[in-house]
Simulated assay, not measured.
Amino acid sequence: MRIRILRNPACLGALAALSLSPLTTGLASAATMAAEPAPACLVLNQSWRYAQAGNGCGVATAVKIVYQDGAEGACIVVRPDETPTIGEGYLGHHGRALYLALCQ
């Protein structure tokens, strides 16, 4: 029975399309979640418990954290020379923070 299914070109094409659909869906969703990285004067610090953003830019800037699982934190305005807590640490639900992103 198994050999007959694989010999039929229509069944083989359908099987290939079904097996590849999760891959293409994952790539499309990851591409839409990308956010513009913040400038280098904004520094991300993450410990096991908290994530903080240091602002050395000289102007208030709205940022959010982008985590390794694609999740994004809340948009928070960080004033110059401040380092507020803006998210969870790497033991939180989303794991490690990848970078700070600009937001509005």
Results as ranks from 00 to 15, higher is better:
Pro9Met: 02
Ala10Pro: 00
Ala10Phe: 06
Cys11Tyr: 08
Cys11Ile: 00
Gly13Met: 12
Ala14Thr: 05
Leu15Phe: 02
Leu15Ile: 11
Leu15Ala: 08
Leu15Pro: 00
Ala16Glu: 02
Ala16Cys: 13
Ala17Ser: 05
Ala17Tyr: 04
Ala17Ile: 08
Leu18Asp: 03
Leu18Val: 15
Ser19Val: 15
Ser19Lys: 04
Ser19Thr: 13
Leu23Gly: 00
Leu23Trp: 04
Thr24Ala: 08
Thr25Tyr: 09
Thr25Arg: 11
Gly26Ile: 04
Leu27Arg: 01
Ala28Ile: 12
Ala28Tyr: 11
Ser29Met: 11
Ser29Gln: 14
Ala31His: 02
Ala31Glu: 06
Ala31Met: 05
Met33Ser: 11
Met33His: 14
Ala34Met: 07
Ala34Thr: 10
Ala34Ser: 09
Ala34Phe: 01
Ala34Lys: 12
Ala35Cys: 08
Ala35Arg: 12
Ala35Ser: 13
Ala35Ile: 01
Glu36Asn: 01
Glu36Lys: 00
Pro37Ala: 04
Ala38Cys: 09
Ala38Met: 08
Ala38His: 05
Pro39Tyr: 02
Pro39Ile: 01
Pro39Cys: 05
Pro39Glu: 07
Pro39Lys: 02
Val43Tyr: 00
Val43Phe: 03
Asn45Met: 07
Gln46Ala: 10
Gln46Trp: 07
Gln46Glu: 13
Ser47Cys: 12
Ser47Lys: 07
Ser47Gly: 14
Trp48Glu: 14
Arg49Thr: 08
Gln52Ala: 14
Ala53Ile: 03
Asn55Ala: 10
Gly56His: 07
Gly56Tyr: 02
Gly56Met: 06
Gly56Leu: 06
Cys57His: 05
Cys57Gln: 05
Cys57Thr: 06
Gly58Trp: 08
Thr61Met: 08
Ala62Thr: 15
Ala62Phe: 09
Lys64Gly: 11
Lys64Trp: 05
Val66Arg: 10
Tyr67Phe: 13
Gln68Leu: 15
Gln68Trp: 12
Ala71Ser: 14
Glu72Ile: 12
Glu72Phe: 04
Glu72Gln: 15
Glu72Met: 12
Gly73Leu: 06
Ala74Arg: 14
Ile76Lys: 04
Val77Arg: 06
Arg79Gln: 09
Arg79Pro: 07
Arg79Glu: 09
Pro80Cys: 10
Pro80Ser: 10
Asp81Asn: 12
Asp81His: 13
Asp81Ala: 09
Glu82Phe: 09
Glu82Leu: 14
Pro84Ala: 07
Thr85Arg: 13
Thr85Trp: 03
Ile86Lys: 00
Gly87Thr: 06
Gly87Ile: 07
Gly89Gln: 14
Gly89Cys: 09
Leu91Ala: 08
Gly92Lys: 05
His94Ser: 13
His94Asp: 14
His94Met: 14
Gly95Gln: 07
Gly95Asp: 03
Arg96Ser: 12
Arg96Asp: 11
Tyr99Lys: 13
Tyr99His: 12
